[in-house]
Design a protein around this nucleic acid. Structure first.
Lengths: 369, 369
DNA sequence: GTGAAAGCGCTAACAG
DNA sequence: CTGTTAGCGCTTTCAC
């Protein structure tokens, strides 16, 4: 009975060697160091390899031997739906993917969504065959970040938290950037401001009514939030206001629990209801600002004539719609995070990389109406 | 001198065993089969593990041993920028990521962009430590798809090509769906139609002027295109037109080389110039249709009064703007592709899964003006 | 409950 | 140019 071209047992480097009566090294060389053997022999090897259905050295075995996985792990602790609906996050991933591509590395999305228990997510982190990790915008004390640290691999943290020992950091100066924007808004004459932020914690921490899309933020909640980037931006607004002699009561902070338009609209409505004298609605994210603008339009409130609206991120749609915002280089953040992993600094020391932001004076901010 | 808590050489299961004077099996059991040893012992093992900086069994070594990588590979042959700017592609990825998350699997983005040579991209495919592959919207004869097939792992092809031997397929009935839409448009009375499509091949194949954003499509180019989904949709339009007694000359086909608004606008312009009698602009993708609408507005051409515009995909922005289009379940495609890999059919045979589409009669189609 | 033995498939010296 | 020798770190029967 003739050999099947696709033998029961998958071909391995060893079986190929046996078949061809050469050593395993030679086969290995045929794939990894073509200059170490005669072209003829190599040709013959590749030919029988194909015929035996051998697609080349097993990646896993190679990884074990070389101690290189050829991939970096990306851990995003927010639900995927959030990240995939946020252009800033998406751009970040694109930038990271780009450098991975250039470095010939894979990008492993490590699954740690809320749909699994912490234990299950943990196993995903622990079983990721990667050479390093990027952790994107994790809250303080995040269990997965903790786990990643324990793996002891090179680690780059993006956006937050900014103080992970041993890890490099890529981010922006959230507080200063937001302050600059707030200085501008205050400079226009606004004295009662609404501030819309993305969620600062678990929904049920904030509101007994689990169905609410948005809620007023208490000072305790603000103090205790593990979402550093958001709270820094809020602090930036406060900085500008107190510099102008405005107290905390002039600022109405509302958090939106979801990343969508409905939630953003609800947050805007809540802010306006809580303090009807608000003349400016600042938002810690463009998605929120766009949702707020839609909501205001539906309510017949004209921007910027009757209400100033500002965002944060500088996503394309926001820029297109003339939103006054702060633009941050999301794509570049991804690239930096990638290079830090692919071409680590010679010192081996963690790097802190604060990228520049830019105030964009759009068409949605003006003097109080 | 006391042992350093972080020894030079990384701790392994074996070193832990030596330290604790138990067998390697026992350590392994402590992590993989907690019920196989006394809680006390397990506790002790985990404690010293932590102290020695051992984060658990090495994922790569485990993979080699168990023959499971715990991840699926996603190969997207289009440039990342395309995919990340196309909500339909994004939703697909989100759906796939979702099932991976639920299955506790990682999702490995395999880097095969155009920024690297085919050879380099190949190595990425060959060195991906995964249990299966999803190949998204690959052109016919794609070298990477070829390579993936040679790896001999479970494979799910999405959208195109639809006839990969041994692979499962997830997609939609492109031709029929587009025909339904075209029947509707023709039924409204349109007799001269412009058809905007995404690229059908390499740019330089089509046009000597490498700077052109768009080009008229010859029948040869259409016949030879490796992008099956696009050509099927075009065929659907033709079906409807010939059923109405309209010849090929009533259809002006233009391809847009880039995925962005500029390119889409240029394509629209080109179609209108090539045949000024066009009363309807059908597009094989919503991104194109939206760009066309923006362009028409800038030109002062009213939709649908003076021009009917239709899309394909049913992305949120299109629906929001009232585009008449065909909606396809992108998210669901991702989920299906994932389940096909995670819970393969008992038969082991390839599955062909054609998902339903829905004609959305928006506000952008009307009788010829 | 615990241990000994046998590899998973490969690459990296180092000799020849 | 080619072969020999040693593992990489782990899991898994199968005995004890």
């Amino acid at each position: 009975m003739p050999r099947s071209p696709t033998p029961r047992r998958r071909a391995t480097l060893a079986s190929l060697a046996a078949e061809l009566k050469v050593s395993r090294t030679t086969i290995s060389n045929a794939y990894n160091r073509p200059d170490q053997l005669s072209p003829d022999l190599r040709e013959r090897i590749l030919a029988t390899a194909k015929q035996m259905g051998y697609a080349g050295p097993d990646p896993v075995a190679r990884s074990l031997r070389t101690r290189k996985a050829g991939a970096v792990g990306l851990v995003i602790t927010e639900p995927l739906t959030y990240s995939f609906s946020d252009p800033a996050a998406l751009n970040f991933v694109a930038g990271l993917a780009e450098t991975c591509e250039q470095a010939g590395q894979g990008l492993l999305l490590v699954a740690v969504g809320p749909s699994r228990s912490v234990e299950e997510g943990s196993s995903a982190v622990l079983s990721a065959g990667v050479d390093g990790f990027v952790v994107y915008a994790a809250p303080d004390e995040d269990p997965y970040l903790q786990l990643v640290r324990e793996r002891g691999l090179p680690l780059v943290v993006v956006d937050q938290p900014s103080d992970v020992p041993g890890a490099s950091f890529v981010g922006i100066a959230d507080r200063a950037a937001m302050r600059e924007l707030a200085d501008y808004v205050v400079g226009l004459g606004h004295r009662e401001i609404g501030l819309l932020t993305l969620r600062l914690g678990n929904r049920d921490d904030a509101d007994a009514d689990g169905r609410a899309q948005a809620a007023l933020v208490s000072s305790e909640r603000l103090r205790d939030t593990p979402f550093r980037a958001q709270s820094e931006r809020i602090a930036g607004v406060r900085d500008a206001m107190s510099a102008a002699g405005l107290g905390d009561d002039a600022l109405t902070i509302v958090e939106s629990f979801e990343h969508d338009a409905v939630s953003g609209g609800a947050a805007a409505e809540l802010a306006l209801t809580a303090n009807p004298r608000i003349t400016a609605l600042m938002c810690t994210a463009d998605v929120l600002a766009l949702a707020a603008m839609d909501h205001l339009r539906a309510r017949g409130i004209y921007v910027p004539g009757q209400m100033t609206v500002t965002g944060f991120d500088g996503v394309p749609e926001a820029v297109k719609r003339g939103l006054t915002t702060v633009s941050q280089p999301s794509l570049e953040k991804g690239r930096r995070a990638g290079s830090l992993l692919h071409q680590p600094p010679r010192s081996g020391l963690p790097v802190v990389d604060i990228l520049p932001t830019e105030l964009i004076r759009g068409r949605t901010a003006g003097p109080p109406g």
